[in-house]
């Protein structure tokens, strides 16, 4: 039981409706698709050669975040996580 029971009389807010959450997700997927499509037709200029190759930034952004989360969750957290009162003994 939550400390703050959610009142059921309350009007449903925008993200209480699953339809709206889906809308946000679909617009994100559309952006993803559009940015990849643009990359096919527009040749980006960069200082390094790999910057202009197809989807470099997209792949890097995606992979970087996945690696970040995996390392943080499976390597760093087991190493550094302690109970909340660790320093209070």
């Amino acid at each position: 039981m939550s400390k703050h029971p959610i009142s059921t009389d309350e009007e449903l807010a925008i993200f209480d409706k699953p339809k709206n959450v889906k809308r946000v997700l679909y617009s994100l997927y559309t952006c993803v698709f559009l940015l990849l499509a643009v990359d096919l037709f527009y040749n980006k200029h960069g200082i390094f050669t790999w910057e202009s190759s197809f989807a470099f930034y997209s792949v890097y952004g995606f992979v970087a975040c996945v690696i970040l989360v995996i390392i943080a969750k499976y390597v760093l957290r087991p190493l550094v996580m302690r109970k909340e009162d660790y320093y209070n003994d």
């Binding site: 952006c31 993803v32 940015l35 960069g46 930034y57 995606f62 975040c65």
Partner: peptide
């Protein structure tokens, strides 16, 4: 374009 790609794909991740 490149910055938008970086960020949107991070959001996707």
């Amino acid at each position: 374009l490149s910055q938008s790609q970086l960020l949107v794909f991070s959001a996707l991740a």
